[in-house]
Structure formats: structure tokens, C-alpha cells
């Protein structure tokens, strides 16, 4: 059960409505791309959905939320802190177990950065940091992915690699994207947001990039 059906979603900022009221229903197996101008309310909508579906989702926020003082391994491992007893987690902080080490290493390899396993997160580049947050979301392995511009700092081939990985691992997702081509390629449903309202909602096969550009 990873889809959701939410209605009456609203958000205001400084007394001004930025989102809604709108309804959003996402079924299992739908991979939704949120598109629209910056400031249209995509990030706010992702946040709202995250609040409403509880935390039974893997979230990649725009600001990533990494613990800079910890190495990559631990930032990724944090996705599964709820699966282990406290003693296990505490021990992992000092000396990780080999099963976790190999699974996280494999995950990083899929994202193109296996050599960074023990690098402190603070010393990574923007694109690497983004992939650490993505790895954490994948490792978390919830039924629903909520991601806000997860590949904004990645160059072409890497962006495709990562989006492909996300598509493969999450049957159901809502991803805010400013790159229209990526949206069309890796998502099966496109929702356009304009002035806080749904201005477009279509299967991606029925859309071309020109249709979407109308929103911008």
C-alpha cells in the first residue's frame, strides 16, 4: 500500500497561499513527476504529502539533511535505524557490521561512488552529497519515494544513471523535477503545478516537452 489519496491540501507562507486547496491521488505503480516554474509550489507540495502520508516514505529533500560530521556510510545507514536495536546502532557508529558495509557499498557502486564509503560527508561535492541523500532514501526502502529535485546537481550521464536507479527501485514515487526531458523519460505521470494549483495531469506518453513548456 504505497499510493495515497489526499484532498484539501493547502499551505500558506506569510499569510499568502502558496498551495491549494488541491487534491492529489497517486495509485500504486504511478511514478509521478511534479513540474512547473520555480516558486510554483512543488517543494511545498512534496513537504505536504510527506506530512500527510506519515513518514512511511523515503524522502529526499532539497536541502538533503545530511549529518556533515559523519562519513557517507553512516549517513546512508541512518535509513534503517528503525530496523535494529539500539545496541546494534550504537556499535555500528563505532564499528559497522560487515553485512551493512557490503550492502551499502553495493548501493554506492550503483550510484557511481563506491570509493567514498568512509569519506566525511562535509568534504563531498554537491553532486556527491545529493547521491548520498538518494542512497539513504533507497536504503530506507519505503514503498513510496518523495524526492525534491534529486538530480539538480548532477551532470547528464550521472543524472540518467541515478534516475534510472530510482525508477527501478521505487514502483511508486513523486519527484519534483525541473528537467522536462528527465520527467518524460523516467516518470509515467506528469503533474504540472502553476500558482499553487494543478494545471496539468497526464500520462507521460500522451505529452511532449512542448506541452509542458507551456507551464513555464
Amino acid at each position: 500500500m504505497s499510493g495515497f489519496d489526499l484532498s484539501g491540501l493547502t499551505a500558506s507562507f506569510g499569510g499568502e497561499r502558496v498551495i491549494g486547496p488541491l487534491s492529489l491521488k497517486v495509485n500504486d505503480g504511478e511514478q509521478v513527476a511534479l513540474v512547473g516554474k520555480s516558486g510554483a509550489g512543488k517543494s511545498t507540495l512534496i513537504r505536504l504529502v510527506h506530512e500527510h502520508v506519515g513518514r512511511e516514505s523515503s524522502l529526499v529533500p532539497q536541502e538533503l539533511g545530511l549529518v556533515n560530521a559523519l562519513p557517507v556510510f553512516h549517513n546512508v545507514f541512518m535509513g534503517q535505524l528503525d530496523r535494529h536495536p539500539t545496541w546494534y546502532n550504537t556499535l555500528s557508529l563505532i564499528r559497522p557490521f560487515s553485512a551493512d558495509r557490503s550492502s551499502i557499498k553495493a548501493l554506492l557502486k550503483a550510484l557511481g561512488m563506491p570509493e567514498k564509503l568512509w569519506t566525511p560527508t562535509a568534504s563531498l561535492s554537491g553532486g556527491q552529497r545529493q547521491r548520498v541523500a538518494i542512497a539513504r532514501a533507497i536504503y530506507r526502502n519505503a514503498g513510496l519515494l518523495l524526492a525534491d529535485e534529486p538530480v539538480s546537481a548532477l551532470d547528464g550521464p550521472l543524472a540518467h544513471l541515478v534516475m534510472n536507479e530510482l525508477k527501478k527501485r521505487f514502483a511508486t514515487s513523486v519527484i519534483a523535477l525541473h528537467d522536462v526531458d528527465l520527467a518524460l523519460k523516467y516518470c509515467n505521470r506528469i503533474i504540472g503545478i502553476q500558482d499553487g494549483q494543478v494545471a496539468l495531469d497526464e500520462h507521460s506518453e500522451r505529452l511532449t516537452s512542448a506541452d509542458i513548456m507551456a507551464l513555464y
Binding site: V67, G79, L81, D82, N89, T90, L93, R140
Partner: peptide, 17 residues
């Protein structure tokens, strides 16, 4: 980072990480 932890994470683990 605390907000992003999976629900059900123990308080001690959340604090330490």
C-alpha cells in the same frame, strides 16, 4: 537529519546519529 529518520527509530540511536 532528525526529521528524516525512519519512524520507529529509537531515541538513543536518533540522538547518536
Amino acid at each position: 537529519p532528525g526529521r528524516l529518520l525512519p519512524p520507529g527509530t529509537g531515541r538513543i540511536a536518533a540522538f547518536l546519529y
